[in-house]
Amino acid sequence: MTAGNGSGPGRRPRSRPGIRAQVDQRRNELQGQVRAAVEHFEETQERINARTGRNLLFAVGIGLLLGAVLILSLVLVKELFMLLAGTMIAFAVVELAGALRLSGRDVPRVASVLAAAAMLPASYFFPGLGQWVGIIGAVLFVSAWRLVEAVAGRGSRSADDLRRDLGAGAFIQLYVTLLGSYAVVLTAEDGGQWWTLGFIIVVVATDVGAYASGVAFGKHPMAPRISPKKTWEGFAGSVLAALIAGVLVAVLMLDQHWTFGLLFGAVLAVTATAGDLAESMIKRDLEIKDISSWLPGHGGFLDRLDSILPSAAAAYALFLLVG
């Protein structure tokens, strides 16, 4: 028996010394590629965040979560949507009341939330009369609360400050609660849940179109004094996305002709953009970036509702037009 190469029984064959070096080299190359990809992704995220002022990942995650809850509430039980809308509007009312306090306006937050909480069920169960009686009652309730506070010695009692406080309280109810109630009134109609879901889809498409087109092509500011990052290129993208979404929603969801879808998309593109600019104007007057920071990547609830609020009223008007 020869013992020349050491490969006899019970002995493992010797590995060539170059195999381990090759494995280590490949592993190092793979790790380097992964690090480079991560660094490239982070750099891209930083550029997008710097241009849009939003954390894209957080924004997408929160948006998907809100969208899932919205769809479930509309498809399963319509009353659940009233609770969802009431919760979001209540948070938006608190946010705006708190922001207005920064400018010296004393708006009673508890009264404002109670007024909104009573207004929405009245709008849902008693459409029309309940909505308008509810909003008048909401404004009077908030105003009376503030007057009682002034008589009790809380806050300023000067006539000028009181007038401004009462105006701010009424503004919150008219801007947030009344406009938001149109989504509730629309949902209460026969088949209205599909109209509500449809107009929100178009509004979301408008926002996405504006975001993508603005990031990719935005050069010419649309309203630099109000919203410096909003561009005409972004607005063009939002209109195109709204028209496409409007036609699809009209034909596939609302059983309407495609020409109505064009009208649906065009109107909502305008109202969504106007709502976004209106909230930007409020924030610019108050010298704040976001109404709040409760929704990571989005700011606050009002930052998510700004496009939806006027669009809800427009969608209800279009529903009545073809209904």
Score class of each variant (00 low, 15 high):
308 I>C: 05
299 G>E: 04
99 A>R: 13
216 A>S: 15
29 E>L: 13
143 S>D: 10
217 F>H: 03
323 G>T: 00
254 L>G: 14
115 A>M: 14
195 W>R: 04
211 Y>E: 11
164 R>T: 15
107 V>A: 02
255 D>N: 15
141 F>T: 11
55 N>C: 00
203 V>D: 00
215 V>I: 14
178 L>Y: 13
22 Q>D: 15
294 W>Y: 06
26 R>A: 14
319 F>R: 07
126 F>S: 01
281 M>E: 10
97 A>L: 08
289 K>Q: 06
221 P>Y: 02
307 S>W: 06
238 S>V: 00
272 A>V: 03
6 G>H: 00
303 D>V: 01
123 S>L: 04
290 D>S: 10
103 S>R: 15
251 V>C: 02
58 F>Y: 14
218 G>E: 11
149 E>D: 15
166 L>G: 02
185 V>I: 03
98 G>F: 12
264 F>T: 02
125 F>S: 10
201 I>Y: 12
155 G>Q: 07
263 L>A: 15
18 G>L: 12
271 T>E: 15
20 R>C: 01
118 A>W: 06
268 L>E: 06
52 T>N: 02
251 V>R: 04
305 L>A: 04
3 A>E: 12
96 L>Q: 09
76 L>C: 05
83 L>I: 13
117 A>V: 14
131 Q>K: 11
68 A>Q: 00
8 G>F: 08
168 A>G: 03
228 P>E: 09
196 T>I: 09
46 E>W: 02
235 F>Q: 00
214 G>T: 02
304 R>I: 06
304 R>Q: 07
305 L>Q: 03
125 F>C: 04
152 A>P: 06
125 F>D: 07
51 R>G: 04
311 S>W: 03
34 V>Q: 07
310 P>L: 05
178 L>E: 05
295 L>D: 00
196 T>M: 13
191 G>Q: 06
26 R>H: 08
184 V>A: 03
14 R>I: 14
261 G>Y: 05
51 R>P: 00
52 T>L: 15
103 S>V: 09
54 R>H: 12
152 A>T: 11
154 R>L: 04
78 K>L: 08
76 L>Q: 09
38 V>W: 07
125 F>A: 13
319 F>D: 03
306 D>I: 08
161 D>L: 12
134 G>Y: 08
124 Y>Q: 03
211 Y>H: 12
11 R>W: 08
96 L>Y: 08
228 P>H: 07
167 G>T: 08
84 L>T: 02
294 W>T: 04
30 L>M: 09
320 L>K: 12
32 G>M: 07
234 G>F: 05
